[in-house]
């Protein structure tokens, strides 16, 4: 555990809490992609199956359980409790275009050809692209609520901080997980355009809107 990893995890947790708070307080999930949220639930479910088989630490177990529970909590709010506010007309990204190639790749490129390891790899690859429906939705509507943009900034920062964690671990622990690093870099790059808009607009007190 190093400071980058810890702040990355906190940013991730903060992102999830921000999203849940936005939906709960506004009683609405308008502007949130249900498809991205479904894929995040799938990511946590397939990655954290080792909760059953392997104990690492109290921190590890607690965070994993929070991530799994909150992802299903978000789905419950979006698809059951506040279903009427779900903006499905703008959430038109085709999930199969991500899930199918990612599933194929996780069978081909993994650390070990075992069920749990393939599922872990699947979750790493899927996480790297799971935000695309959300970004696609923003590009379709041309804007995002400020709280939604804070959520995305925290979520993007998490993987960027993990990259610093991997650099640290490479130099000080000789540790290097190619699959995690490549997928993590792809994931972070996908946010770059959003980061630019967020810093130039939201930090100056404006709403996040896309240039015409």
């Amino acid at each position: 555990m190093n400071v980058f990893r810890l702040t990355g995890d906190i940013a991730h947790l903060l992102a999830i809490i921000l999203l849940l708070m936005k939906i709960w307080k506004t009683r609405s999930c308008a502007g949130v992609s249900g498809k991205s949220q479904m894929m995040f639930a799938l990511v946590f479910t397939t990655r954290y199956l080792d909760l059953i088989t392997n104990f690492i630490s109290l921190y590890n177990t607690t965070m994993k359980m929070i991530f799994i529970a909150s992802s299903y909590g978000t789905l419950y709010l979006m698809f059951l409790k506040f279903r009427a506010t779900y903006d499905s007309n703008h959430d038109t990204f085709r999930m199969e275009f991500l899930v199918v190639p990612v599933a194929g790749l996780s069978f081909l490129v993994n650390h070990d050809f075992s069920p749990l390891e393939i599922l872990w790899t699947f979750s790493i690859y899927l996480e790297s692209v799971a935000i695309l429906p959300q970004l696609f939705m923003i590009s379709k509507t041309g804007e995002a609520e400020t709280i939604t943009s804070h959520y995305l900034f925290a979520l993007g920062s998490y993987r960027a901080l993990y990259i610093l964690n991997w650099v640290y671990r490479f130099y000080f622990e000789g540790f290097f997980d190619l699959i995690a690093v490549v997928a993590g870099c792809v994931q972070t790059v996908l946010y770059c355009d959003f980061f630019y808009l967020y810093i130039t607009k939201v930090w100056k007190g404006k709403k996040l809107t896309l240039p015409a």
Partner: peptide
């Protein structure tokens, strides 16, 4: 190590 079979990272 090239990977951590325990996957301690979240």
């Amino acid at each position: 190590a090239t990977y951590d079979p325990n996957h301690d990272e979240l």
